[in-house]
Write a protein that binds this DNA or RNA. Structure first.
Lengths: 142, 142
DNA sequence: AGACGATGGTTGGGACCCCAACTATGTTAT
DNA sequence: ATAACATAGTTGGGGTCCCAACCATCGTCT
């Protein structure tokens, strides 16, 4: 198979790596009956109690409209609670419920195992620099 | 904003970087009226004349069913031609038409500009190792 | 030849995503 | 006070993706 310039271009390899990693985490989180997309969402809410949906969408790199069904699902399953603010009745405050914290704990365990595998592939020596580059790409591609 | 463990985990940063890069390339390729997903597809067909859809889907990291509408669209717009094989009348042979080669040239120019920006962010010194790590992740996550 | 299993491609259903338009609420300016 | 504008969230439409089921063709085994 001839990949031409794709073989040594960053964009293509970035995509392939990300999809492989996502796929692997997806299988892992499926074992505990959760969708992988829920993990980042739940973590960010847990770490930022009372966050609004729009703030959450920015932190998560998603459009706010993408979050509507996700949050709806988390609320329906009792993992997140959603209250209108008093001062501004347009916005919601999101919080993780005790049940949500439990789920998050399992998911975090999953993620840690997943991370260990990736760390092994990356190698401890390069890990820090690798992540720095990823962060720069995310921040500066604009 | 508190990202908790997400901040230093590979998976999350990989996703953010990939999506930023994809988004940037998407804007670029939109200027010439093409969808970014067409680029890898067209390149692989051009580099592997007569490839089948299933082979293409593997090279591309997609399910073969995902390619049905993509190839259909490329054929409809005259960028790719599709012929049944004689020896095996189940499979198609895909080839890029002259019009397709033209489009591919524009897309490649786009991609080169895009790559230059990313190279600038990564830094020439780390580029090679960075790509090696991405390749290993794609290959070994299994 | 006929049956069975493998393979290439398509179809249908569901998940997740973005964008544009919309509703409801808040804020600012006159 | 009220009109104009801004912001939080939802809705609807379209794109891309995966998976499971399916159709047609091929190869093999008897």
């Amino acid at each position: 198979m001839n990949f031409g310039p794709l073989a040594y271009w960053v964009g293509f390899n970035l995509r392939m790596a990300q999809e492989a990693a996502f796929e692997a985490f997806s299988r892992r989180s499926q074992e505990i009956g959760e969708s992988p997309g829920r993990f980042a969402t739940l973590t960010i809410i847990a770490r930022n109690p009372g966050i609004s949906q729009t703030e959450l969408s920015h932190a998560n790199g998603r459009d706010k409209s993408s979050l509507t069904p996700v949050v709806e699902d988390l609320v329906r399953r009792g993992l997140v609670e959603r209250k209108r603010m008093r001062e501004d009745r347009r916005t919601y405050r999101l919080n993780v419920t005790p049940a949500g914290k439990k789920t998050l704990t399992s998911l975090t365990r999953c993620a840690r195992r997943h991370e260990r595998v990736m760390d092994g592939i990356i190698g401890q020596r390069d890990r820090k620099r690798f992540i720095q580059i990823l962060k720069r790409l995310a921040a500066e591609m604009e």
